[in-house]
């Protein structure tokens, strides 16, 4: 697995893929979708697909691919090696969603939540397989959110393909287990050798599992909190763990779409009370009644100063 395209710029989302086996272009194929790194506050989320001809399903079983969570890291590396050796009939593709992509998606003005991001990534990968000429007939997906809704969404998106969405699909269908191994191996490697875009000097790589409840991760997060910038791009800013720490330890930053209410905010924004539109104006009440700055200046947000 060559991770260099992602490592060259780990700010963005990146797709890695194996060669498409020739059999997959001619024979009916099945495809499994799974993800790794959904929960951690650190590092990327990796989506993986694996596909093989329906007729080769049994051979995949013989590789003893199993749910990636039940395996040790060494066992996973070993299984990935086996999958790679079976490239005459097994293909895979990965979408690495960088932590920066996750942060900017979830925190942008029109919020794009993790479920939507996950669904769209899965759809993108299935579409990639179709575009590459893989004769897809069956798709197996581990669920994100309610299974039947997700299944309907995928079935509508890909008419003519039998879509099965199941919780714990990675332990039920070998092709999903295979996808899960690809995704997990990629994430492990990326996290282990993370290239920090920021100049942090000798970075302490003892960040543990990256899950919010890991004490090592917590210590690391506290250590690398910058009062102005917050965190390196390795951290998912949209995670409440990161946000809580930034709220308490870093400088407060105000954004235009912050939720703000109350009279003070209204006053600051120069909002008028609804009532003021109904009553006749009371002369002299308005401080600026005598002098109103010309709209040339107000439209350009220009004002005179009485002190610097």
């Amino acid at each position: 697995m060559d991770l260099s395209p992602f490592e060259a710029n780990n700010s963005f989302s990146c797709r890695l893929a194996s060669q498409i086996p020739d059999v997959c272009r001619t024979e009916d194929c099945c495809l499994g979708v799974d993800e790794a790194g959904r929960g951690p506050v650190l590092g990327p989320m990796v989506y993986g697909i694996c596909f093989c001809p329906v007729s080769k399903k049994e051979e995949l079983k013989d590789l003893k691919v199993a749910d990636s969570k039940t395996l040790t890291e060494a066992e996973r590396e070993d299984l990935f090696q086996k999958l790679d050796e079976a490239k005459s009939y097994v293909g895979w593709a990965l979408q690495i969603l960088s932590p920066n992509t996750i942060s900017t998606s979830m925190l942008q003005r029109t919020k794009y939540n993790l479920n939507a991001l996950s669904h769209d990534t899965a759809i993108g990968l299935i579409q990639y397989a179709l575009d590459s000429g893989v004769q897809l007939k069956e798709v197996y997906v581990d669920t994100v959110g309610p299974a039947d809704k997700y299944e309907d969404k995928l079935s509508q998106r890909f008419p003519g393909i039998k879509v099965t969405v199941r919780p714990k699909a990675d332990s039920l269908f070998p092709i999903v287990s295979a996808a899960s191994i690809c995704a997990k191996v990629a994430r492990d490697r990326v996290v282990k050798g993370w290239n920090f875009a920021e100049d942090l000097g000798d970075v302490d790589t003892e960040y543990g599992s990256g899950y919010p409840n890991d004490p090592k991760t917590k210590t690391w997060l506290l250590k690398y909190l910058d009062p102005v910038f917050g965190y390196p791009q390795f951290v998912r800013f949209s995670w409440s763990t990161a946000q809580t720490l930034m709220d308490s330890k870093a400088v407060t930053v105000h954004w235009e779409d912050d939720d703000e209410d109350g009279e003070k905010a209204a006053q600051r924004k120069n909002n008028r009370s609804m009532l003021s539109y109904f009553s006749a104006s009371t002369e002299g009440n308005d401080h600026n009644a005598t002098h109103q700055t010309h709209r040339f200046f107000t439209e350009r947000r220009l004002k005179s100063l009485d002190a610097l």
């Binding site: 105000h254 220009l302 100063l305 009485d306 610097l308």
Partner: peptide
């Protein structure tokens, strides 16, 4: 009312001072 202006070097020229100010 009192307002800020700037006098150039040697008081040769008068400048007005305006500030662009917007939230966020």
């Amino acid at each position: 009312a009192a307002c800020l202006y700037m006098l150039g070097c040697g008081d040769a020229q008068l400048y007005e001072v305006k500030a662009f100010e917007e939230d966020f």
